[in-house]
Simulated scan of single mutants.
Amino acid sequence: MNWARIEGNWKQLKGQAKEQWGKLTDDQLDVIAGKRDQLAGKIQESYGITKDEAEKQLDTWQKSRKFD
């Protein structure tokens, strides 16, 4: 699924993001609103990882998304 579809369907997909990155709060996910760069930044900040690692996690998560 491309990121534009993730962003467009964020209300449905943010629960899956919460499952993947449980340290992120519902409020953070609401503010992020599907914006990839903001999500990467919050993952990096919350988990104390590098930007590259956050991007790798996002790539993996994005590739595994299925939307019926």
Results as ranks from 00 to 15, higher is better:
3 W>A: 10
3 W>Q: 07
4 A>Q: 09
4 A>I: 08
5 R>I: 11
5 R>L: 08
6 I>L: 07
6 I>A: 11
6 I>P: 04
6 I>K: 02
7 E>Y: 07
7 E>Q: 10
8 G>A: 12
9 N>F: 13
9 N>V: 02
10 W>T: 03
10 W>G: 02
10 W>P: 10
10 W>S: 08
11 K>C: 01
11 K>L: 15
12 Q>H: 10
12 Q>A: 11
13 L>E: 01
14 K>L: 08
14 K>I: 04
15 G>M: 09
15 G>F: 15
15 G>C: 03
15 G>T: 10
15 G>K: 05
15 G>R: 10
16 Q>K: 03
17 A>V: 15
17 A>W: 02
17 A>M: 10
17 A>D: 03
18 K>E: 05
18 K>T: 13
19 E>F: 01
20 Q>N: 07
20 Q>V: 11
20 Q>P: 00
21 W>L: 03
22 G>E: 01
22 G>M: 02
22 G>I: 05
22 G>L: 04
23 K>P: 00
23 K>W: 09
23 K>S: 09
24 L>N: 06
25 T>A: 05
25 T>P: 15
25 T>C: 06
26 D>C: 00
27 D>M: 01
27 D>Q: 04
27 D>T: 11
27 D>R: 14
28 Q>I: 06
28 Q>M: 06
28 Q>R: 12
28 Q>E: 15
29 L>A: 04
30 D>I: 00
30 D>T: 14
30 D>Y: 12
31 V>M: 04
31 V>C: 00
31 V>S: 10
31 V>P: 01
32 I>K: 08
33 A>K: 00
33 A>P: 07
